[in-house]
Write a protein that binds this DNA or RNA. Sequence first.
DNA 1: GATAAGTGTTCTGGATAATAGAACAGAATC
DNA 2: GATTCTGTTCTATTATCCAGAACACTTATC
Lengths: 251, 251
Amino acid sequence: MDAKHPVRTTEKTLALVEELMDRGPCGVTELANGLEMGKSAVHNHLTTLQKHGYVLKTGDEYQLGLKFLEVGGSTRKSMEFYQVAEPEVKSLANETGELANLLVEEQGMGVYLMRSKGEEAVDLDTYAGLRTYLHTTALGKAILAHLPESRVEEIIERRGLERKTPRSVGSREELFEALEGVRDRGYAIDDGERLEGLRCIAAPVKDSSDEVLGAISVSAPASRVSDDDLHGRLPERVLSAANVVELNINY
Amino acid sequence: MDAKHPVRTTEKTLALVEELMDRGPCGVTELANGLEMGKSAVHNHLTTLQKHGYVLKTGDEYQLGLKFLEVGGSTRKSMEFYQVAEPEVKSLANETGELANLLVEEQGMGVYLMRSKGEEAVDLDTYAGLRTYLHTTALGKAILAHLPESRVEEIIERRGLERKTPRSVGSREELFEALEGVRDRGYAIDDGERLEGLRCIAAPVKDSSDEVLGAISVSAPASRVSDDDLHGRLPERVLSAANVVELNINY
DNA sequence: GATAAGTGTTCTGGATAATAGAACAGAATC
DNA sequence: GATTCTGTTCTATTATCCAGAACACTTATC
């Protein structure tokens, strides 16, 4: 699993990229200080990345370029699950008027593949590509509930169970209890755990051999989701969307 | 502009990433042959990228992970132009029922920031992040028409004017003539140049100091776009969308 | 079922290349 | 106009990347 002979130079480049992602546009000296590297080394890495389109220079500042979006967009486009689910998530958003999301698991984390806003949708700070802990969202719990228990244990081991808010899952017992509930109901719920006043309903998408491919959700402000909706109209609609994707994936 | 002291190891990693993007999932030997590198070197680079989430391994095959989408999505999200234009492109798609696009220029190439499909939209093989030559699309011509002539010359020098189809622009004279027309009309047209039977209308978005930020377009099959539409209803709608973005960007 | 040819992975030391540090040029600040 | 910031260039030395060989497997082939 771990690199036996890591390429240290590459690791420095990647650290530089992530530093640039966190800081936004900035100069050579600031990056060199943040990464504890010499200015000349940082400069060499930056000009190399620039040459290949991964970094842009405007004046004396460097920033990430859209080449990452090209590579990322291309990998997303090559995923059958995304291709099939995309139109369904879109109509889910249009029909409910709320925010609809698509999440997959990768290396123990949740990755948003897309989000689609309906007419009235709240504007969360999620975006395509954003990573999230699986145990902190309805989407993540819908996925965890249908992974083998050993995989779930691995993921807890690797990523921990840090509490995002006081109301959220924070222990192994709480999580497994929650996952049991998800399996019983068929869908996962987040009632203000991640964000006060926000309710989410998520359903898993499984392939023909019952392996979970990802999850679909709708997020809406509590003011527009009655307690009846939360266990009636909305889950029905989300489950139906997930079901259509399953049918289209399995031919 | 060019790296004086390029980091060769980083360049090898980037070459590996692009090879992986072109080939899709594949093994160590295939990559090593394609890149003319030793197997052990390729293996070291792959495990390093995997360690940081940029590459995934399934069985004996390696493939790109969604970390690129994270970095790319984050850079896109940090662009004010995208933030402001995104809802407008979406409603342009919904109201016309066709395919709406958003393009920016980067390093002499066009980069699609997003595409939004209306009810009847054709399904082109464009995707967020895709790069295209500027002179081959209506979107690109809308941008070129509002760049300083010296920039346009630089871009021609750097990227050439390769013809995509027999009908498309293929010489400096043709291009500058076309750009003149775009400036006169206020919008750019692609009438089957890029793809037989596909008509596109694109309008530039400029900031308060008249610098072009990008372009918005609608693409539709010729069967649904009359000659009247091509110079009436559609450009009006696209220009209006571009105008709204300009107003919202300049406060 | 034995052999051969494929795969990915590990290991090593010697050739390669990354980088710290100093020096430079230019901008901004005081 | 001196000082202190920038980003950039250069070089020598150190660190490290990588070819090539050997390994453990799996898959073909006869």
